[in-house]
Amino acid sequence: MLPWKRPAGWWLRNPRYFLFQMREVGGVFAALYALVLLWQLREFSQGELAYATFLAFMGTPGMFVVNAVMFAFVLVHAITWFALIGKAQPVQLTKEPIPWQKAFAGNLVAWVGISVVVLYLIFGGL
């Protein structure tokens, strides 16, 4: 018998495996930014000075690059997620199943709409 085991590093062998790993890493960056938000809330609760120190640190060029990288990975996560959720439809809402490309397009439109709503309701408009 020759048992077969895929060695670690398999995700570099095939471009699709690599894209899969990028997608997964994108999700982890969402958790990282959630921790940043938590930290922001903590500094906010500590008062004006602590919050200003936090903002100053987040405004340094190094942190801007980190934030931009996080943003890029979260975008990868968001876009792949919009593509994936159209593929799993256990409960059929319409008579004909929706092709995933259509669901993907619909999700993108909804995403833009929700982003604008969030900008107005949560962050106080443009």
Binding site: L84, K87, A88, Q89, P90, V91
Partner: peptide
Amino acid sequence: VDPAAAIQSLKVL
């Protein structure tokens, strides 16, 4: 066949 989609649907169910 689309096993990947089937598994996600099964997970939801």
